[in-house]
Design a protein around this nucleic acid. Sequence first.
DNA 1: GTTTATATCAAGAACTATTCTAATAAAGGG
DNA 2: CCCTTTATTAGAATAGTTCTTGATATAAAC
Lengths: 142, 142
Amino acid sequence: MADSLTDPKMAEKLDGLRMTKQRKVVYDVVQELAIDHPTASSVYTKAKEIMPNISLATVYNCLETLTEAGAITQVNLHREASRFCPNLQPHAHFFCAKCDSVFDVNLNEQADASEPWNLPDGSKIQEMNVAMRGLCPNCQDS
Amino acid sequence: MADSLTDPKMAEKLDGLRMTKQRKVVYDVVQELAIDHPTASSVYTKAKEIMPNISLATVYNCLETLTEAGAITQVNLHREASRFCPNLQPHAHFFCAKCDSVFDVNLNEQADASEPWNLPDGSKIQEMNVAMRGLCPNCQDS
DNA sequence: GTTTATATCAAGAACTATTCTAATAAAGGG
DNA sequence: CCCTTTATTAGAATAGTTCTTGATATAAAC
Ligand SMILES: [Mn+2]
Ligand SMILES: [Mn+2]
Ligand SMILES: [Zn+2]
Ligand SMILES: [Zn+2]
C-alpha cells in the first residue's frame, strides 16, 4: 500500500514535482489525522506545529498538488469545507450528523459500486463519489 | 408522483408553511429547468422573468424551504454551486466533465444503493448521495 | 372587519472557504 | 555556483451563501 511519498509507486505519480519540505509536512499531517478526514485549516493548524512559517495558501497548494498527483483524495459533503483522505482504496464516506465525524466505508469484496446504477449508455465514469449521512454507532445510543 | 405543490402528499409535507407566490414561482422554475439541474442563480434569472421583483435572497430562502419540506433536493459536486432537482425518486447524478451537464442516473430495479457497502455496525443512514463524474455520451465522440 | 401575531420578503452587509496575484525564495540540472 | 523553473508567502479578491434588519403580507383571534 502506497502510504508514503517515498514509495516507488507514489514516486512515479509525483514525477516532475519537487518534493518540498512543505509538501512532505502536509502529506504527513494528512496521514497523521487520516481518521479525522481533516479540512485544509485543520491541516494548517497541525502543520504549523512542525513548520511555524508555513502559510495557509501553501497548505491549499500542497493539498491540491497531492490530490492531482493521486497521493490523497478530496472528500466533499454538502457545502462544508473539503476534507482530505490518504486512503487510496475505493471507499465511501459516512458523515455523522450529530458528532460530525467521518468514517471510511469499504466496498464489499468483489462488489462494484456502480453496479446498481443504470448508467447512461455510452458514458464513461472517471470518478465516483459516495457519501452517506446519518447517525454513527456512538451517537445512536443517546 | 408528487410533482406539484398542490399534490395531496406534497401539501402534507408543506404543512404549516405558506404557499406564497414566490415559493410557487421558484418551485415551478425548478420543475421547468429540471433537466438542467439549475443553480440558485439560474433559478433566480428565470424567476425574474415571471416575477421581476423577486430577490436572490428569496430564491435562496425558497429553495431551502422547499428542500427541507422534501419537495426538491439539493445536489452538490465538488465545490461548485449547489444545483436543485425536483425528481424525488432515489437517484444518482452523473456530471459531464466536458460540457458540465448533469444527468439523473436511476437505480436498477429492486437494487439497493447501500448494498455493496460495508456499513459501520449499528449506524443508521438517513441519506445517501451518489455522484459520478466522467464523459457523457455526446462528449465521448469528439 | 379590526386587531394582533406570525411568517415571509427584500436589500444589502457579512461570512467562509477558496483562489488569485505578485513578489520572494528554494530546488535542482548543467 | 549560476540559471531557469517551480514553489512559497502574504494579502487581496472572489463566489456562493447566509445573516440582519425593517418592511409586508397573511392568518388567527377577537
Ligand atoms: Mn476516506
Ligand atoms: Mn436529479
Ligand atoms: Zn456520531
Ligand atoms: Zn458532456
